[in-house]
Amino acid sequence: MHRRAEVLDVLVWRGDANGGGYHSYGVPAQESQTVLDVVTWIQQNVEPTLAYRFACRVGMCGSCAMMVNGEPRWTCRTHVKKVFGAKGLVIAPLRNLPVIKDLAADMAAFFDKWTAAEGRFHPSKSRNDAMEPISPEAPNRVAANAAIECINCAVCYAACDTVTANPDYFGPAALNRAWTLQNDVRDAGYTVRQDAVSSSGGCFNCHSHQSCMTYCPNELNPTASIAGLKRLSALSYLTGGKAR
């Protein structure tokens, strides 16, 4: 039994890009305790040099994702009682990303791939133009809305086995973002983004494992977004860029 009376047995990965290992800690159990609370308790009471990342603590900023008992999770909204297993609590930095130190993963590759997938908005109007009327019922707005609540936590990126096997692959978050923009009538970057998501690191590498959908803390479905991009790209190619 790893959960002694009031103390949680916790293993935390410590190290850097050169390697590391798990360290064991006993953390006082509390009611409504999150995994982020556990990590913070260790840093404030036992290991002041423990590196980890968080900001909002309410599931909005996407900073605190880590591997918890082998699965990627947003730690600020993950209750200990929900994930505490036979091995206690095992906390590690996000998978598929290099480690900076301890639980802080290097997010550079993740955001570089957002850029490579043209995940930025290309404005089509200036402040002097009239505001674009957007109907919430328009099909492309409905498609964009279904995918828009991404908080860039990289949980999907860590969950994706295709990212593990294929370092060039943009990953679910970047492509999900591209999909929302391809459905945004105000955006002027459709063609350049279509080329980006059809490139060798793009949407066609997705094997539809759906791990991104399984683990997304906001219950988005990046697999469906990527399938949408595949459809758009294939149609665009077959019609010589005329289909949109």
């Binding site: 294929n166 060039d168 059809s198 060798s200 793009g202 066609f204 590498n205 294939a234 190619y237």
Partner: peptide, 12 residues
């Protein structure tokens, strides 16, 4: 690694 042409060739 897989672009639009290879994707379409495989699907078709």
């Amino acid at each position: 690694m897989i672009g639009v042409r290879l994707y379409l060739a495989q699907r078709l």
